[in-house]
Amino acid sequence: MPEDGLDWLSRAELMNYEEMLRMCQLMVQMGIEKIRITGGEPFIRKDIMLLLSSISKIDGLKELTITTNGVLTALYVSQLKALGIKSVNLSLDTLDAARFFAISRRDEFAAVMNTLDELLKHDLDVKINAVVMDGKNTQDILPMVELTKNLPVSVRFIEEMPFNGEKHNYAGLHWDHLRILHEIENGYPAIKKLSDDLYSTAYNYQIPGYKGTVGIIAAYSRTFCGTCNRIRVTPQGTLKNCLYDDGVLNIKDLMRAGAKDEEIKQELLNAFSQRPIDGREAERLRKEQALVHESMATIGG
Rank of each mutant, 00 (worst) to 15 (best):
I44T: 15
G70N: 03
L26S: 11
G39S: 09
G84D: 09
E33Y: 14
D96T: 12
N89K: 06
V71A: 01
I44Q: 11
S104H: 10
K81L: 00
K34D: 14
T38I: 10
T38F: 04
S53W: 02
N69C: 05
E63R: 12
I48M: 05
M49L: 11
K62E: 15
L83F: 04
R45F: 01
R106D: 01
K34E: 15
I66K: 04
F43I: 06
V71M: 01
M30V: 15
L51P: 03
I103M: 11
I35T: 00
E33W: 08
K57W: 02
I32W: 05
L61P: 14
C24W: 00
S53Y: 02
A97R: 09
T67Y: 03
S87G: 13
G84L: 05
R99I: 13
G39A: 07
F100P: 09
M30F: 10
S78Y: 02
N69E: 08
T73Q: 04
M20A: 09
G39I: 10
S104C: 08
N69W: 00
G70A: 03
L75T: 13
L80H: 00
G70P: 01
A74I: 00
I103H: 12
R45T: 15
G84R: 05
L72R: 00
R22F: 10
I32R: 09
E41R: 00
R105A: 08
D96Y: 05
Q29G: 15
T73H: 03
K46T: 15
R22Y: 13
Q29I: 07
G84H: 07
K81T: 02
L75P: 13
V28S: 07
L51R: 01
D93S: 07
I37F: 06
M20Q: 08
